[in-house]
Amino acid sequence: QEPLTSSMLAAAPPQEQKQLLGERLYPLIHSMHSALAGKITGMLLEIDNSELLHMLESPESLHAKVEEAVAVLQAHQA
């Protein structure tokens, strides 16, 4: 699967841009938190597309954001 680029994203309608990002993010997030992957991906899709693209290229950034999202989710569900 070729990497998602900003030009590929820009060619898609806004709603589809989030879909494209979600499809790339979900497997990565699922490998970290399988049970919460859908909700974590949903939360992260609220972030700017440019930052989401950066996270796809930077495992460290993604990991940090996923941990943040998990903490928020757990606080929300408590």
Binding site: Q15, G22, Y26, K39, T41, G42, L45, E46, Q77
Partner: peptide
């Protein structure tokens, strides 16, 4: 049942509707 609906959940292969109401 649970009334917690946030956050919207992403499912691979399913069109994302989480931000439709913006």
């Amino acid at each position: 049942g649970s009334s917690i609906s946030w956050p919207p959940e992403f499912h691979p292969g399913v069109p994302w509707k989480g931000l439709q109401n913006i």
